[in-house]
Design a binder for these strands. Structure first.
Lengths: 241, 241
DNA sequence: TCTGACCAAATAGTCAGACTTTTGTCACGT
DNA sequence: ACGTGACAAAAGTCTGACTATTTGGTCAGA
């Protein structure tokens, strides 16, 4: 009996969510190794859930590319190359255990690609409302950053990036907002942030907001690239010590 | 009774796959509008499948952010901003109907972000084996492109981009290979390609391959950007006429 | 008439058990 | 060695029951 699931609180559909979370995290962390084989029977008995609950969880994991189900064989953990790494849940699982900094490193490389492009597009398309939101977010980052209030700072930071990606007017870029949010969250919640946010980083956010407001795609793109590089450098430093 | 599902061939788990496909496509195409409400009961009776099958399909759609399920109210189609647009299946559904060119346009903007970065990274990290694969893919593109063999050309094109993304050594970038593959596939299978591939585009692929081989990240990045721009321009032209 | 408490119906969530289909394995005969 | 056929294991599917939650309405009282 695997005592991995959270207590069945007064919440909604806990069984499915808990089972999914537990299995997903076990796979993401490698505790269930690639190639390992499960059976529905095994899951129902070790987690003490019904067959339907187990099947539904497996179907979701299958849709994320984490497992493959075959008759007469069972449920096999698929090789990592087949995982759908952009699923926010999988990202969260991977951050919660195992290769945390690994994940954050690859995410940073990726952000270096798409956030500058998003900034450039936003400079062409942002609405006045979005510009106001960006300015407000930067302002909040300044205050909370100075006081060392990490939670509100995180919220403002997320708001900044989400707004910028939305302002790009590109649905796919906007969809990456949840990914970026998870990354920022993971960075502060897993002690990969300096206790006080770097004032330089905040200044760069301000530069981006200003460039977007002034419809200067080139400058927006450049400053955004600087933000990512700063974040990557900070991450490397925290990781190194 | 909605006669939307493919005939139950000799395949494996047809019921689930067909139901999921049908529902997913109906939602992606907008035939099931945002905010519309389904019930399990309705699904089981209109598709003539069991409750379990319906539940499993809904659970997967839920995990993609396409629907939300609530007691006493039913299964609601969620607003598009909440969809997980990076799920390869959703991309395919959206290409198969409705906003095909819309989707391809946003994908192009996105590719403009990450493929150049991938090319630059590949120039630093590609193995000799990968360089060989890139060269072979370009060679195949030249011959099949000259003869107008669109299917083999597509295959070589996909191979090129997949290899490049893999060579970036970044797992997230590699994961985008399936996205790019679907896009390339959609472009040729939906008459959004010129009958004969543009020789200039092929030359650009060759430039990228050479820059990667010569460990020149800047050149690789630049040429890759040119590829994307060429593709976007071609797409706009095909779309425009 | 408004307010609040309570009740009933609708609907998803969960479970248990049966049957069907596919497929890997192994024993058997050639 | 090489088919080949029987067996069994496992997922796939279906059905029906029960549970839990939430909505919406009803009714008593102020």
């Amino acid at each position: 009996m695997i005592n991995d699931v959270k207590p069945n609180g007064a919440g909604r559909s806990r069984i499915h969510a808990d089972l999914l979370d537990s299995l997903g995290e076990r796979i993401a962390s490698g505790r269930l190794a690639v190639g390992e084989v499960l059976t529905l029977e095994g899951i129902t008995s070790s987690y003490d859930v019904s067959r339907s609950a187990a099947r539904e969880a497996i179907r979701v994991l299958e849709s994320m590319g984490l497992v493959a189900s075959k008759r007469r064989v069972g449920i096999t953990v698929r090789p990592r190359e087949q995982w759908n790494l952009f699923d926010p849940r999988l990202i969260r699982w991977r951050l919660e255990c195992g290769d945390r900094s690994n994940q954050l490193l690859s995410l940073s490389e990726l952000r270096r690609g798409f956030e500058p492009v998003a900034a450039a597009l936003a400079a062409e398309r942002a609405t006045p409302e979005q510009n106001r939101t960006l300015a407000a977010a930067v302002s909040d980052m300044v205050v909370t950053g100075r006081d060392g209030d990490l939670e509100p700072y995180l919220e403002a930071d997320q708001r900044f990036h989400r707004t910028l990606l939305e302002a790009s007017g590109n649905e796919m870029l906007r969809a990456l907002a949840s990914v970026v949010a998870v990354v920022l969250e993971g960075r502060t919640h897993h002690d990969l942030m300096p206790r006080n946010p770097n004032p330089e980083a905040i200044a760069l956010h301000d530069e981006v907001a200003r460039a977007v407001r002034q419809r200067d795609p080139g400058a927006a793109e450049k400053s955004m690239r600087a933000i990512i590089d700063e974040a990557a450098a900070a991450l490397a430093e925290e990781h190194g010590r």
